[in-house]
Design a protein around this nucleic acid. Structure first.
Lengths: 213, 213
DNA sequence: CCTCTTAGATAGTGGCACTATCTAAGCATG
DNA sequence: CATGCTTAGATAGTGCCACTATCTAAGAGG
């Protein structure tokens, strides 16, 4: 039963910031002892660390983190839905502009990719999904700049993504309680993103060194 | 020879914002016609589109974009260095805290990974590289949360990253002029990041649907 | 000539993630 | 039991960032 000061101490987060997270609903309130004191548990510490990781490492806006965490604990949803809802709320760039011809082309390329990859669930969910929109916006930007980004170029990316997803879900399934699984899914989805990007950049440096260095 | 208004029109960026980019050095000044008029070229339009893509799709801070673009045009550097400098300046999360035991563990895991993957260039450059630090910070965060993230877990990610890097560099090498190659490297590195993340999230949704749906 | 636009300088805006201050209420120690 | 330290909760302020608006002097164009 720690007090706020200890929670702050053990997490390395300032008391003022913890209060801010409490206000914003990122952290459930502690159990009230008296009018001016509350007790926090190991669970609070764990949640606080997750919040920090999402915000600082995953570069997630506070408002987004709140939605993601809300989905985590939403008992009205079943397992798969809860997982989907959490990932759904993840940050995504600007919406693709429908009037832009590059966006239309991009949408076509992405749709064809989904078909070729056999991702039927993605095709069903379609342009409702933030991930789909993020993808279209990025492909459209590439297209506007004149860089090739058709199905052929995207396929190796999709294949790699597919492999990684299998590894990720394997990891998630190592947890028994559904609650743990959903939290793991969110944490692994978000926190492996900088891992993946960092590794890709290092691999590019490696390959560039090999070819031009 | 367009004037600012036409540049704005054709790029979809407001004149005020273009002025801001000019002030910030993201865009080279137009050729001065008179004291109150400047002419911009197709090259300006192209650069402006790149800037917008880096900032909006790649979520890059303006100051970072300036550094990246400066490296692009730095004739003092040779080809490989220029490429490296540009990627070097790319945005990266917070620095890993050296005092944190999780960071030390993370560093060990990453170093072992680099050895196992045979990424000798990365090992040489070591912890100077922003990508390396980003990686360590992310692995440390995972570790603090109690999620497994050792060499065995990272290897599939590294392998995928390696495959993608080959594809990326192949694409870069399709351009002939070195200038174009460097710009392509930056654009492809940055703009394929949201593509990769989007595809991974969609693949996870697909896999989750397959297993739990 | 008279209006419209532009470059360039400067100041202002809105959003975000905190951070500081204040108050009233406890708890803890001599 | 007095006195000083801590806490919760409310409110206001800060610093940064990416623009955005306004103003002025100098052309440009019909």
């Amino acid at each position: 039963m720690m007090k706020l000061a200890e929670l702050s101490e053990r997490s390395g987060v300032s008391p003022a910031t913890i209060k801010y997270y409490l206000r914003e609903g990122l952290l459930p309130p502690g159990r009230r002892i008296t009018a001016t004191q509350a007790a926090y548990t190991e669970e609070h510490l764990r949640r606080l660390r997750l919040v920090r990781a999402l915000i600082q490492v995953g570069r997630m806006p506070v408002a987004t983190a709140r939605e993601v965490l809300a989905a985590l604990g939403d008992d009205a949803l079943d397992h798969h839905m809860r997982l989907g809802a959490a990932v759904w709320a993840l940050p995504h760039g600007p919406e693709p502009d429908e009037d832009d011809p590059a966006a239309v082309t991009a949408r076509g390329a992405v749709d064809e990719l989904l078909e070729r990859a056999g991702w039927d669930f993605g095709r069903e969910v379609g342009d409702e999904s933030p991930a789909y929109r993020m993808l279209v916006a990025a492909v459209a930007a590439l297209h506007r700049l004149g860089y090739p980004c058709d199905t052929a170029h995207l396929l190796p990316y999709a294949r790699s993504a597919g492999q990684l997803a299998v590894a990720d879900l394997d990891l998630v399934e190592e947890y028994e309680r559904e609650e743990e699984q959903v939290e793991a899914a969110v944490a692994l989805t978000v926190l492996y993103e900088p891992v993946l990007l960092g590794l890709r950049r290092m691999a590019e440096a490696e390959e560039s060194h090999r070819r031009f260095g």
